[in-house]
Amino acid sequence: MTSPGESHSPAKPTDQSGRQEPGTNALTSADSGGVMGDRVFSGVALLSGVAILVTLAFVAIFLSFNSVGAVYREEEGLILQQFLEYAYPLVIGTLIASLIALVLATPVAVGVALYISHFSPPRLSKSIGYLIDLLAAIPSVVYGAWGMSFLGPALVPVYGWLHQNLGFIPLFAGNPSQTGRTIFTAGVVLAVMILPIITSVCREIFIQTPKLHEEAALALGATRWEMITMAVFPFARAGIISGVMLGLGRALGETMAVALVLSPGLLTASLISSGNSTIPAEIALGFPEAPPGSVRQAQLIAIGLVLFIITLIVNMTARWIVNRHKEFSGAN
């Protein structure tokens, strides 16, 4: 995220000035247009890199500046404790909903991507690909409406069954919701929403598996599935993680669908009773009622900052996981 823009710029000038010796060297004047193009391109690249950093910095500054009111008040001094008590149920709620979404969506996405890339007849694979991409084109408010008025009620009997048979597990304890508008329903809706992004990233990377390695596995007597575990998955590992992280990013930040589906409440371990809330939903529901400049608004912005930091940590962790096995990635 940081380096590409900067790392090019220092190399450039020295490279140029080194060759600027006066004299009759026939090699000096050639291809000035190409040199110009090179400079322009490196300038544009630098600018784009800087633009991202600046935007990011502005967002971070805005969030930090406006959230001061939530953790510091002149009469009471630092009130970090109070803010944390407010924020942590939301953080946990957000993580639970995203986790449910990931656990449900990842296997399906990987399966669909594998089917498209390695199992289906070519013509069918294209149309399935389009259909999956279509899922990404549905506005999140539509997903929210679907979750609220269809999926939720449809899951009510499931919740009842879970409570009856697995009620001893804290996840399924508590009163099952009669409307189905629970954190689990929200997680399912999120799963459907992040399915396309994970699928298309996985599909792209699966297709790129070198034929060479697939054939190596097959020639050793691997079945199709063994070939996939020997050649495709190891090759695609980093790509799958990136796809999942992109999906997680979307799930963490998804606002509208969760706000519509979930009937928010206090933090509870139960997935099937109403309760819990997520950061984006809390902000979306609370913001219209928070007067500008008020403590409430500062509080909402502050949890926005918390979400920002969580997402940052998630992305950095993903990158770390991807890099950890660089030696074995096949890039060398």
Binding site: P210, L212, H213, E215, A216, A217, L218, A219, L220, G221, A222, T223, M230, A231, P234, F235, R237, H325, F328, S329, G330
Partner: peptide, 22 residues
Amino acid sequence: PVTVRSMVGMVFQRPNPFPTMS
């Protein structure tokens, strides 16, 4: 074919060790 291939091994034009394996 899986049985056949485990009896008849193959070495390819370009070396293709599995990159993620030691």
